[in-house]
Simulated scan of single mutants.
Amino acid sequence: MECLIPPTVLELARRARAVTVLTGAGMSAESGIPTFRDPATGLWSRFDPMSLASQDGWEADPELVWAWYAWRVGRVRSVEPNAGHHALARWAQRDDVRLHIATQNIDDLHERAGSEVLAHVHGSLLAFRCSVCQEPYQAPIEVPAEPVERLEPPVCDCGQYVRPGVVWFGEMLPQGAFDAALDACLEADLVLVVGTSGIVYPFASLPDIARGHGVPVVEINPEETNLSDHVDHIWRASAAAALPALVEALGN
């Protein structure tokens, strides 16, 4: 089915020479990665994801937390970037536009599609580091073929456990990541908000800040979100349908 582009959105995209795209879990969900708040299935249905994404949870049972993240690594590795990821990579290759991507997603699907990501505001699942000395951990990690309830984390050279490089509840965002996303929004001619629910702050504040500085903001999402009343234009379509249609309409 053809994805109809709102004429105002197409005109904004044609005029824009600096575009900032803010992506959320809905974009990765179209590749088969469940959103963080989706009901878990199988082994992990017995656990509250919130308790697995905190320093307290890690300190209480690092083997349980690591097993959950190892399972999530396996899920990410098993899927491919969707048409929306590839469309953004093609758009960024155009000579007449400067396109920045800031994402809440902790996967590497944007990069695997060929995009350079300005900011992983909530960290990266695949950027492992020591839980104590913070030294990056580069060695391959074991990913079980089937979910297991406990798995011992790798050990850093300092003797402490390695953890995923994601931002847990109560932790600071990666140094400079939010500031880079904010600067990109303020310097843009157009901000696209794609597949994010607008629940998690401070990322959810970026569209409002951009609008306050006169930057037009477009939401691309098949569902109404917390951001829908705080954008200039709404396009009710999925990322995998809307972004390829938009990039194709922009031409070569």
Rank of each mutant, 00 (worst) to 15 (best):
E2R: 15
E2N: 14
C3T: 15
L4H: 13
P6S: 08
P6D: 08
T8F: 03
T8R: 13
L10H: 07
V19L: 14
V21L: 08
T23W: 04
G26K: 03
M27T: 15
S28H: 07
A29C: 09
G42C: 06
F47I: 09
D48E: 15
D48R: 12
M50I: 13
M50D: 15
L52K: 07
A60W: 01
L64C: 11
W68L: 11
V76R: 00
R77L: 15
R77T: 09
P81L: 11
N82V: 05
H85T: 04
H86A: 11
L88S: 01
L88G: 02
A92S: 13
R94A: 07
V97H: 00
A102P: 00
A102H: 02
I106E: 01
D107H: 04
L109P: 02
H110V: 00
E111C: 07
E111N: 06
G114E: 01
G114Y: 01
V117N: 01
L118Y: 02
R129M: 06
C130M: 00
V132Y: 00
E135D: 14
Y137D: 05
P140N: 10
I141F: 08
V143I: 15
P144N: 11
A145P: 03
P147K: 02
E149F: 07
L151Y: 05
P153W: 00
P154M: 05
C156E: 04
C158V: 08
C158K: 11
G159F: 12
G159A: 08
Y161Q: 13
V162W: 05
V162L: 05
R163H: 13
G170K: 03
G170D: 12
L173T: 00
L173W: 03
L173Q: 00
P174Q: 13
P174F: 12
G176P: 02
G176I: 01
F178C: 06
A180R: 09
L182Q: 10
A184W: 02
C185E: 08
E187W: 03
A188V: 00
L190D: 08
V191C: 12
V193R: 03
V193L: 10
S197R: 12
V200R: 10
P202W: 14
F203R: 02
A204T: 09
A204W: 03
A204L: 10
A204Q: 04
S205G: 07
A210S: 05
G212K: 11
H213L: 04
P216M: 09
P216E: 11
E219W: 05
I220P: 00
N221R: 07
E223S: 13
E223T: 11
E223F: 04
T225I: 10
H233R: 15
W235I: 10
W235M: 11
A241T: 14
L246V: 09
A249K: 07
L250C: 12
G251D: 13
